[in-house]
Every structure is written in C-alpha cells, then in structure tokens.
Simulated scan of single mutants.
Amino acid sequence: MKIQNKHWKVYKISEKGNFREINEDYVGCAFHEDSSLLVIADGMGGHNAGEIASKIAVETLLSYINQIKEPNVEKELITAVKMANEEIFKKSSESLDYSGMGTTITVSIIINDFIYIANVGDSRCYVVKNNEISLITKDHSLVQELVDSGAITEEEGKVHPSKNIITRALGTSKDVEVDIYKIDSCDITDILLCTDGASNVLTNEEILSIIKSYDGSEVCNNIFIKSLEMGSRDNISVILCRGDS
C-alpha cells in the first residue's frame, strides 16, 4: 500500500506469516502539511489480546497527532505514548481475557528537517544515509541486556532461545519509560520501521540490500518474503518511508 505527501512516500505491509493464526501487529500513518507520522506495534497476550493492544496503541497515537507540534515534539511524543500505555492498561483490567496484554511501539515523526523517534519494546527503526544503514532504536529485550553486559555476543544473541523476551512494553504497568531520539533528516533517503518478525531473522545488511535493490512497495514485499525464507515464525510488519527523488 502506498501513501504520499509533499515530501515522503510511504509503503507498508503487515501479514500474519506462515505460523501464527492471527496478526497481532498493527501499523498506521498520518500526514499533515509539514509532518509525517509512522507507527508500528507488535502485540502480545493470549486470547487475541495482543491484537487488541497493538490496535489501541496505534489508534491512540494517530488520534493524538494533531497535538504534536514544534517546539516540544519530544515531550508531546512521550505524552502520546504514555497515553497509549494508559489506555491498554485500563483495557487489560476490564476482562480476564485481556489481563497482562501489552505491545511494543515504535513511532517516527518527520517534521521539517528533523526525525523524532519513540520506542518501547523491540520493534525497530532504521535509517539509510549515504547508502549505509543505521539502527536508531535499541531493543528492550533480555537478549539486548545480555549483549550489553557482555554475557553473550551479538552473534550469539541472534540465535539465543530467549530472544523473544522483551523487558519493556506498553500496557503491562501503569507507567512506562519511553526512549526518544532526534536526528537530522539531511541526506536520509529511507526510514524503515519493522517488527521482530523481520529483524529477528534478517541482518542489517540484508535489510539494506533489499532497500537498495527495489522500489517502493517492493521493498516491503521482499522483506516479508525474505523473512519467511529465513524461517520467521512471527507476524511480519514493515513500513518504509522514502524521500522524494
């Protein structure tokens, strides 16, 4: 699916993959005259609760976008993510079926010359600049903590049996800590958000190769296909935001 505004073209895909019965990922975007918002979430919880949590997260962010304006973008973005957290936490207390549900969230807002990114969990945001890819977000996961402590290497982390355990999520407690990043958009050609259904099985270099090899929606389609080929057992969602050439 392609969406376009004055400066950026956005392509997205969200599929359940080959092993899950339902798709607990949820993606969305919104555009205004001088800004673009991308958001991706990966839900967790039994009895379809993950599907509900991720949808609440994305829809809450999108409904708040009109209030996110300079010069306090970071502050307003944190407020929006915390609001989503509160909505999910409240919903989880209404039924035993929803108890303990949660979701990751990764948000990117492009305003004028800057890109603002918020992250909770292990969904990721990458940017491509000068034909090189950089991972902007840092996973809130058990494996990342083990890598940071030196207990395991990054290569060992890719095949660690606990790589799906996250240490921070929306909806699992009344409050949540939100990571915020601000980067200059100069020379950035692509922004890519994805859930761990892709990032757990593809290297940064493999993702970059696909970004460089295909146009628009074909990037999302080929990341999905490649993730399946590499054995992904999860839902797979990708948003690509590409600057006008």
Rank of each mutant, 00 (worst) to 15 (best):
K75E: 15
L170F: 08
G100R: 15
E155P: 12
G197L: 10
G45L: 01
E156C: 08
K2C: 03
N18C: 05
L135A: 05
T172G: 03
K55Q: 15
P71N: 15
E218G: 00
E205C: 09
K174C: 03
K6L: 06
N204E: 15
N130C: 06
T189I: 03
Y11N: 01
R124K: 12
D42W: 10
T195V: 09
I40K: 03
I188N: 12
I191Y: 02
L62W: 00
I207F: 12
S108A: 15
S162W: 01
V238D: 02
S14R: 04
I180W: 01
D113E: 14
R242T: 12
S54A: 12
E70I: 00
K82F: 03
L96H: 04
K75C: 06
D34I: 00
E76H: 10
D196K: 11
N221M: 03
S63C: 01
C194M: 12
G50V: 11
G243P: 01
K212E: 12
E33Q: 13
D34T: 03
S14C: 03
T172L: 10
T167M: 08
R124A: 04
S93G: 04
D179V: 09
G45F: 05
D122M: 12
A169E: 04
L142G: 07
N23F: 08
E86Y: 13
H160L: 12
I165P: 01
C125K: 02
N23M: 02
S123G: 10
D42V: 10
S95M: 11
G43V: 04
K158P: 07
V238W: 05
A57C: 11
E70S: 06
S227E: 08
D234C: 09
D175S: 13
S134I: 11
N66E: 14
K12P: 00
C186R: 14
L38M: 06
N222I: 02
I111Y: 13
T106M: 04
R20I: 06
N200L: 07
I191Q: 06
K2N: 06
G150D: 08
M44K: 10
S95Q: 05
K75G: 04
S95V: 07
L202P: 03
N222M: 09
